[in-house]
Design a protein around this nucleic acid. Structure first.
Lengths: 114, 114
DNA sequence: GAGGAATATTCCCGTCAAGGAATATTATAA
DNA sequence: TTATAATATTCCTTGACGGGAATATTCCTC
């Protein structure tokens, strides 16, 4: 049954789990930015900034737009929508109907013994 | 200003970004389980299962309950709630009012040149 | 208390990802 | 075309993490 549970791109999670990349994402939510601007605001060196942006880009978290010499990076909505629908599928867990369930299981196991 | 943006525990993300741990979480959403049951159902060895569960536990994603010889693991709602409210703060991004914003920025930069 | 089941912990090893430094690439302007 | 700014890429090294195997721990039963 089911099968309707959203497939979280694990790659999205691992991409976001790197602190610098998370910071980049948090920064980009305010609007598109240049590589240099991102590096400046976060105190990162340019090469590592580019590398992190590449990872984010490869994972579809970010998209680029060439503007002459510069590259403007901005967030893409898709992975966030996916993450959202995945986390939504945890409604029941988040509403903690689980404690009862647990007690229920405990009883079951006690009965097993007899 | 602001500061109302939820603090996603990055540790939550990195904990979940490991495939086996994600599988454990997906499995546990159906209800509490024993270490052995988890190992069985996922085809993992007991020691690695314990290790992964320890990581999940250290990050508050999971909680334990001793039951005689066995330890019953189950999901904790907190980190999922946190993740949820964090992702919710990306509403504007997910609704992509960003493309326009981007065009706007592009114009700005073109004007800079003149 | 001895044996055995369930789980946790330790040690070792291989892999992989991130940072640093240097260099390559692309585009602009003169 | 040369100089320069902005960005990407490469190479190297190091540290963290996951798996395997062995062992320790805890608890139950007899």
């Amino acid at each position: 049954m089911s099968g309707k549970i959203p497939d979280v791109n694990m790659t999205t999670l691992s991409a976001l789990s790197e602190p610098n990349r998370m910071n980049i994402v948090e920064l980009l939510r305010e609007g598109p930015l240049t590589v240099g601007e991102i590096a400046d605001q976060l105190g990162l060196r340019q090469p590592q900034t580019s590398k992190h942006l590449k990872v984010l880009s490869d994972n579809g978290i970010v998209e680029v737009q060439a503007e002459a010499n510069r590259r403007i990076y901005k967030l893409r909505p898709d992975p966030f929508q996916a993450l959202d629908s995945w986390i939504q599928s945890f409604r029941s867990v988040m509403q903690e109907r689980f404690d009862n369930l647990d007690d229920y299981l405990k009883e079951l196991q006690n009965k097993e013994k007899s």
